[in-house]
Simulated assay, not measured.
Amino acid sequence: MTEPHFSENLFEDDVTDDLPSDEEIFEVDEDDSGLKAQLKEFLKDQLNDEAGPMIESPPVPIAGGSSKHHYKFTVSWFNGTKRIRRHMILRQEPASGVVDSDMQTEAIILNALRGGDVPVPALQWSDLTPTWFDTRTLIFEQSRGEADRAVLRDKDPFKLGLEGRVDLARAMTGILADLHALNPAEHSLDLVLPYPDDSVMSEVNKWDYAVDKEQLDPQRLLAPARDWLQVHMQPGSPELSLVHGDFRPANFLVDDGRPTTLLDWEMAHLGDPAEDVGWYTCSLYRTEHFPEGWGVEDFLARYVERGGPELEPERIKFWQVFAVFKLAVIALRAVRNVESGAVDGPKPPIDRVIETLNADIA
């Protein structure tokens, strides 16, 4: 079992070479004595082991991006007949993040999809009150594989070759089609997730409102894009799908050239399936998501072939622009966190993100 790498760096490499690394974004206290003690008490409560679980390797920080803290640890316990050992990933909310998320909603989604066609992390335990930990916590069984945002690029970190990278891209696209083919009602997700009256307007307005509410753009650098989105607003999708919200190769664990787990469900919601398509194909991610000889047209053909809906070009274009706008909002939040001292590290290159956004709407 390969140790996974978790990454929530949302920006394409060429645009953000000077972004801080995951380890630099947050100062993580490597003295895990407090967390280890909390974890041990939590596991004693969760596991039917009179002798108490053994934490064989204490929680150690691993790269986890700008929205969550991640730790790996190993635990064993006696289940009545034998001792079981598991390698686990513990995920916690930090004091400051760049993405609004709801761990309870994420936990509901992961439990609903477990064992289905879409490969999701195996969520084992949660403390969402929180009662046992200082902040809300999810604990997963470690999945097979590792993630690298350059997996489809010529850097070829997993040595798949061009044909292997194209096969991997096709497999990932098929998983997106499988996700959008799910009926949310069959998994009772329509009962627990917000059900928007207009799947397009509600999502756009949520991020648009955040700019004003958080006073992220006093220089009004985003004004042209905000106006463009309102003028070109698409009608709401007649059929709501479960939208991942951050579907991209960087969020897949890959083992032996195959995608094993789709990570980072914190922005998932009911909405327009074209939103994920626009995010995957937007200008900032174009280089990262498409190996040589396999372009956007191939992606769309594979998506439809696997059961995804056929999407009008103007709808895809709208969501592509929205994707870069959303990335700009996230970057502005990251800039504010650095300027306020909430996190350490250099500022994200927001000017280049906005330049790309303006070029997209020109």
Rank of each mutant, 00 (worst) to 15 (best):
residue 254 V to Y: 12
residue 317 K to I: 02
residue 245 G to W: 04
residue 309 P to Y: 01
residue 291 P to G: 01
residue 294 W to T: 04
residue 280 Y to I: 15
residue 273 P to M: 00
residue 242 L to W: 04
residue 243 V to P: 10
residue 241 S to T: 06
residue 309 P to H: 02
residue 304 V to E: 15
residue 240 L to Y: 00
residue 309 P to D: 03
residue 257 G to M: 15
residue 326 K to G: 01
residue 285 Y to C: 02
residue 300 L to S: 08
residue 294 W to L: 01
residue 241 S to R: 06
residue 301 A to T: 15
residue 283 S to R: 14
residue 307 G to N: 01
residue 253 L to F: 15
residue 278 G to L: 06
residue 315 R to Q: 03
residue 275 E to F: 05
residue 262 L to K: 11
residue 300 L to V: 12
residue 309 P to S: 01
residue 317 K to S: 10
residue 289 H to V: 13
residue 315 R to T: 10
residue 291 P to F: 02
residue 236 G to H: 04
residue 304 V to S: 03
residue 323 A to T: 08
residue 302 R to L: 13
residue 285 Y to D: 09
residue 301 A to I: 14
residue 293 G to I: 15
residue 261 T to L: 09
residue 318 F to V: 10
residue 328 A to G: 11
residue 298 D to L: 01
residue 295 G to C: 07
residue 281 T to N: 01
residue 329 V to N: 07
residue 308 G to K: 05
residue 285 Y to V: 04
residue 304 V to G: 00
residue 261 T to H: 08
residue 239 E to R: 14
residue 292 E to G: 08
residue 271 G to A: 02
residue 274 A to T: 12
residue 320 Q to V: 00
residue 269 H to K: 14
residue 268 A to T: 07
residue 309 P to M: 02
residue 254 V to S: 11
residue 274 A to G: 09
residue 245 G to Y: 07
residue 292 E to F: 10
residue 303 Y to V: 13
residue 293 G to S: 11
residue 309 P to L: 01
residue 319 W to P: 13
residue 323 A to I: 04
residue 290 F to I: 11
residue 274 A to R: 08
residue 302 R to P: 01
residue 326 K to F: 03
residue 301 A to D: 15
residue 262 L to G: 04
residue 260 T to A: 12
residue 245 G to K: 05
residue 308 G to F: 05
residue 262 L to I: 15
residue 257 G to H: 14
residue 251 N to P: 15
residue 330 I to Q: 03
residue 261 T to W: 05
residue 328 A to V: 13
residue 257 G to E: 14
residue 305 E to S: 13
residue 247 F to D: 09
residue 311 L to R: 09
residue 318 F to H: 12
residue 254 V to H: 06
residue 238 P to I: 02
residue 299 F to S: 05
residue 300 L to R: 12
residue 331 A to G: 13
residue 241 S to A: 15
residue 273 P to T: 00
residue 285 Y to A: 12
residue 245 G to E: 09
residue 249 P to Y: 02
residue 270 L to Y: 06
residue 307 G to K: 01
residue 259 P to Q: 08
residue 315 R to A: 00
residue 296 V to H: 03
residue 279 W to L: 01
residue 255 D to S: 15
residue 282 C to R: 10
residue 245 G to F: 07
residue 283 S to Y: 07
residue 326 K to Q: 10
residue 299 F to G: 06
residue 316 I to K: 05
residue 284 L to G: 06
residue 273 P to V: 00
residue 283 S to H: 11
residue 241 S to E: 01
residue 264 D to W: 02
residue 300 L to A: 04
residue 248 R to Q: 11
